[in-house]
Amino acid sequence: MAFLDPHLRAAVGRLEQPSRRMAQYYFRWVDAEGVPCPVVARTRRRFGSLVLLSAGSGEQAWERARNVAVAGTLFLAFGAVHDDIIDEEPVRHGRPTVHAVFGVPAARYLGNALVALASELLAEEPAHLAGELGRRAAVVVRQMSNGQILDAAFEGSRGVTLQEALEVSAAKISPGTAFACAAGVLCAGGSPRQVEAAAEVGSEFGKAWALWDELEEYSTCGDAAVDGLADLRQRRIVPSVAYALQSRGPAREKLLAYLHDTAAPDSAGLLQARDLVEECGALVWLRERIDAHLARALHRLPDAVEDAVTREEFVSCLRSWAVS
């Protein structure tokens, strides 16, 4: 979002070197050597955008929520950097991950620095907001960290249930999106009832977002299709795989055999595993579950946001994100 980026750059500028350059690399402003990118890649700022959308329409409302929106973006960055380490991801959105470029120890500390910077921004809010925002932010870090712990604990396990897979999937994103929506309404002076409704909107949207990202892995075409199948390559039991394993028939048995195989999969094996997940009905189920989470978020939205123009913008963004 164009409104947010200058303020995000200013916040990242507070970091000391080399943390600053690492954060600039994560946000795609510079390359691995610190050289400014000639064309800055457009990246999603969904956490920050949710804060602004919840705060109201127009730059005056957004200005009130500016620092909080930047903090929300930093919380997402913290989660993404640490998640890539745990999942041993070499690439994120077509670019080497932070830990692949700067090393695992440095990437871990960058995640910590981003959380600290976000907390610093929240502490600068007016006194009547800073305490509640800080409390909610602490809950976000606690819950997202617990999701990462569960994710690491389930790594390599073939006994992960569908419910457990869904809980891990949601825990890594939905606490942050719940915070973002609630924080925007807080900045707008909303009532406690509106704030809690906004948190529910954000939680449901976060659950949908996590599943959108999973579905996107299966939807990639061309040469990038194999590179995008990170979860299948690592034989992780994510929700789609857990759902597929509940089915019956030869596709399920072949998928189970793939998951128990210890050899590194080749491209053909990965694509076959993707097809098996689809044959088991998991991609249809993913889309249906995404739609259900989005419907619940939109149903609760009027209780969180009274202004019709703001609600219309909110709905438009959520639906555009659902198909992007």
Rank of each mutant, 00 (worst) to 15 (best):
F154M: 01
E155M: 01
G156T: 05
S157A: 12
G159W: 06
T161C: 10
Q163K: 15
A165T: 01
E167W: 05
A171G: 10
I173G: 05
I173W: 00
P175N: 14
T177D: 04
A178W: 00
A178Q: 08
F179L: 13
A182V: 01
A183Q: 07
A183V: 01
A183G: 09
G184Q: 06
V185S: 08
V185P: 02
L186D: 03
C187S: 11
A188C: 10
A188E: 11
P192L: 12
R193G: 13
V195A: 14
V195I: 15
A197G: 03
V201Y: 09
V201K: 03
K207Y: 03
A210R: 02
E216G: 13
Y218Q: 11
C221Q: 14
D223Y: 02
A225G: 05
D227G: 00
G228K: 00
L229D: 08
L229S: 11
L232W: 03
Q234N: 12
Q234A: 14
Q234H: 10
R236D: 00
I237L: 15
P239V: 08
S240C: 14
V241H: 09
V241M: 12
V241A: 12
A242G: 07
Y243P: 03
Y243G: 06
L245S: 09
Q246R: 14
G249D: 04
P250Q: 09
P250D: 09
E253G: 00
K254V: 02
L255N: 09
L255I: 09
H260Q: 14
T262G: 08
